[in-house]
């Protein structure tokens, strides 16, 4: 849109940049808000000043809003795949396992036990 190529400075506006912040090395970049700025470099600085005056972070992504392709909130059909029961796909759908292990005199284990093993 405003690529700042118009001749009349009055008709030029900053671009909107959406801001994504990563808080730790294994964290994901998470959307936190948006800023307007004259360039992507400026957008990073403005984002830091707007969103990270107290919180710490290790990385900021700024993305021109026009480069974001969003789904429509009206198009609920797009997410309709959660309409049917999907307990067969969830851990919560297998709570019986623990009871059955108990009947065999064994304790049920979860993925967290295996993750803890790995850190041991």
């Amino acid at each position: 849109m405003a690529d700042n190529k118009e001749n009349d400075p009055e008709s030029q506006h900053y671009d909107v940049y959406e801001v994504f912040v990563q808080r730790d090395p294994l964290g994901y970049h998470t959307h936190i808000g948006s800023v307007v700025a004259a360039s992507s470099e400026m957008a990073q600085i403005v984002a830091r000043e707007n969103f990270l005056r107290r919180d710490t972070a290790i990385s900021i992504w700024v993305v021109r809003q026009t480069n974001i392709h969003e789904t429509s909130y009206e198009d609920t059909d797009f997410f309709v795949n959660r309409a049917t029961d999907k307990s067969y796909r969830d851990v919560a759908g297998y709570v019986d396992n623990a009871k059955k292990w108990k009947a065999f005199k064994e304790r049920a284990i979860t993925i967290d036990d295996l993750v803890r093993d790995a850190k041991r």
């Binding site: 294994l26 851990v91 759908g93 297998y94 059955k100 993925i111």
Partner: peptide
């Protein structure tokens, strides 16, 4: 590491699913 965090979360269901059949 990041992508494995997500994969492990889904593997949690695989583990329970397998054990359910075995039990």
């Amino acid at each position: 590491g990041r992508i494995l965090t997500r994969i492990c979360a889904e593997e949690s269901f695989h583990m329970q699913h397998g054990e359910s059949i075995v039990l």
